[in-house]
Amino acid sequence: MENKVKKSIDLHGVACPMNFVKTKAALAGLAKEDLLEVILDEGEAILNVPRSVKEEGHQVIKVENLGSTFKVLIKKG
């Protein structure tokens, strides 16, 4: 992987829309192309956060299924 993960946040148990708010805040602290790793719950969280992240111009580059949570890697756009 070209870039190293700059920040990691665990949003397990954090409901919509706070999970997206926290993801957005974490991305705001990074530079363009930096990678953020986020743990998201199954269900609403994994359905909504990546889509909202896309709407904000960032890119999901990896989603790993960890059972009832997902590890999502996001590249800041």
């Binding site: 990546p50 999901v60 990896k62 989603v63 299924n65 997902f70 890697l73």
Partner: peptide, 10 residues
């Protein structure tokens, strides 16, 4: 496709 696997998971 960037092979992120989001689609498979959602």
């Amino acid at each position: 496709c960037n092979d992120c696997q989001l689609c498979v998971n959602i």
